[in-house]
């Protein structure tokens, strides 16, 4: 019943060609077609940020974006942040500062934090609070998340 189309895009640095139903959301494509389950479903209507991914360097809720709109773009998911050398500075900061509890919101939270700290190397704690407003977390109370973002800013500044 569903019309399908073929799309080409870059996913975590590698080219991907995939056929997807035109009504499918990017979140569903990532999780169910491409097997990248790091990106989470938690509300499906852009209210919680658990499904946040990077598209052409900016972040958005993959539950709101149609998969066909990925065509020709560059996507980075939580699986694409780390390198063979290990976790990227944002991921490492989240682990080191106790920002991860159940961890379910963390893929989206970390992607967003990574974007914010890349986008503004001078990011303040207050700016980070506002920048993470769209990412809900039920475990942490955000305090350790913000500690981690401050540490990530520092780590990136020092080139680590």
């Amino acid at each position: 019943m569903s019309l399908e189309t073929e799309i080409n895009f870059t996913l975590n640095g590698r080219p991907v060609t995939v056929r997807v139903p035109v009504a499918m959301k990017t979140l569903t494509m990532l999780r169910e077609v491409l097997g990248l389950t790091g990106t989470k479903y938690a509300c499906g209507e852009g209210e919680c940020g658990a499904c946040t991914v990077k598209v052409d360097g900016r972040t958005l809720n993959s539950c709101l974006m149609h998969a066909v709109d990925c065509d020709g773009r560059e996507l980075v998911t939580i699986e694409g942040l780390k390198s063979p050398a290990g976790m990227n500075p944002t991921q490492k900061a989240f682990v080191d500062h106790g920002a991860v509890q159940c961890g379910f919101c963390m893929p989206g939270m970390i992607i967003q934090a990574d974007y914010l700290t890349d986008d503004d190397p001078q990011l303040t704690r207050e700016q980070a609070q506002r920048g993470l407003e769209g990412n809900l977390c039920r475990c942490t109370g955000y305090t350790k998340v913000l500690d981690a973002v401050e540490a990530a800013v520092e780590a990136k500044r020092c080139g680590r």
């Binding site: 790091g38 991921q91 106790g98 991860v100 379910f104 893929p107």
Partner: peptide, 21 residues
Amino acid sequence: QRVKKPDAPDKAIGKTRYIND
């Protein structure tokens, strides 16, 4: 002391397979 959660790294890299996954 301050000890890191052993489950945190896999959660931070998106590798943890939750029941939902």
